[in-house]
């Protein structure tokens, strides 16, 4: 793997270079529109010149919407009277232009890999993945709500990143993880990183930020029925208000619904974020709802992340970013849920 040394000034210059050929995005820290003119919510288009600022902990918005846009147009059509193509469904033309997302944290980078598991054969997700490069920054500092290590990640992890920047005394070292990373580095004249810096990073990785999901891994072996029937769900479900905040800010929640929207005779079929917290999510046409009660929906979300998903794909469907811990209106803390679940054993 190639590792280079980069100063802050050079980082700026790199971003400027990239923005000449690609669309480059950086996180926004302040309030920003969910759908601005050409950007995923919580991110902004940069063209260099503005220095990159990152806050401690995860970016305010996850990178999910670059891969799983809210919404994604699947088909378009017209219903205009007398139009020759009336009612004909067409796939919209989509941009194949590379987009570079700068400022990604290791937890979010991992989330893309996790979401890739169910979306392996989803052409829309794959197309978006194809054209998106993630430029990440490892975390020297974490928040009290961060728990990526517990979920099998690491604050210093580079998994899923095309380029991984880590701080050094006088700047960064950057690891080139993928072919897309190579493309981004092509033509840049950078010095290779020094061995000492590389080994310093390795030692940080093996000490403070070591991935350790061993404790939680016991859940994978435990019997579903017992977890499902655990009494903890009642009180949890009681306080949960079944909003979709956790699912929408979560980088690894990937559920969607599909609807047709028609305005002034122009129609589109969209796929948009859905949440298993909403009663409508599981409502059948018949009127029957298999998860008609709040407690059932709350339980589903956690068991999906911590049991159903790992049983099917291996890893947990949570990267420990802690966003839901911070933002849950009623302080449902997934870390507490996990320890309660472990206690069920």
């Amino acid at each position: 793997m190639k590792v280079f040394k980069v100063s802050s000034v050079e980082l700026d210059a790199m971003m400027q270079e990239w923005s000449k050929v690609h669309r480059v995005y950086a996180p926004v820290l302040a309030k920003q529109p969910a759908t601005s003119s050409d950007c995923a919510p919580g991110w902004r288009r940069v063209d260099g010149g503005s220095a990159l600022t990152l806050s401690t902990g995860p970016t305010p918005a996850s990178v999910k919407s670059f891969f799983f846009p809210q919404p994604e147009t699947l088909l378009t059509y017209t219903l205009e009277n007398n139009h020759p193509d009336k009612g004909l469904m067409r796939e919209p033309a989509k941009s194949k232009k590379m987009q570079v997302v700068v400022g990604v944290r290791p937890c979010d980078a991992r989330s893309v890999l996790l979401n890739n598991l169910p979306y392996q054969e989803d052409p829309f997700f794959q197309a978006n993945r194809q054209r998106t490069a993630l430029v990440g920054f490892t975390c020297e500092q974490t928040l009290s709500t961060c728990f990526c290590s517990q979920m099998g990640g690491s604050p210093f992890g580079s998994e899923g990143l095309d380029l991984a920047f880590s701080r050094t005394q006088d700047g960064f070292i950057v690891e080139v993880g993928t072919a897309k990373g190579e493309v981004l580095m092509a033509g840049l004249d950078l010095a290779p990183a020094e061995e000492s810096e590389i080994s310093a990073l390795a030692s940080r990785r093996s000490t403070g930020g070591k991935a350790d999901a061993t404790e939680l891994d016991t859940l994978k072996g435990s019997e579903l029925g017992r977890l499902y029937d655990a009494p903890m769900w009642k009180s949890l479900g009681e306080s949960c208000i079944n909003c979709g905040a956790c699912t929408f800010i979560c980088p690894t929640c990937y559920c969607f619904d599909i609807q047709d929207e028609v305005v002034r005779g122009q129609g589109r079929r969209i796929r948009y974020w859905d949440s298993c917290m909403f009663p409508l999510y599981s409502l059948h046409t018949s009127g029957h709802n298999p998860r008609g009660q709040k407690v059932q929906r709350t339980r589903n979300r956690f068991l999906h992340k911590l049991k159903y998903f790992p049983d099917r794909f291996g890893p947990f469907s949570c990267v420990g970013c802690g966003r839901c811990v911070q933002d849950c209106p009623v302080n449902i803390d997934i870390r507490e849920v996990m320890s309660d679940l472990l206690a069920v054993e």
Partner: peptide
Amino acid sequence: VKKIDALETALQVA
């Protein structure tokens, strides 16, 4: 006023 076309452009580049 909802504009499907306008939104389309935004999404295609995002």
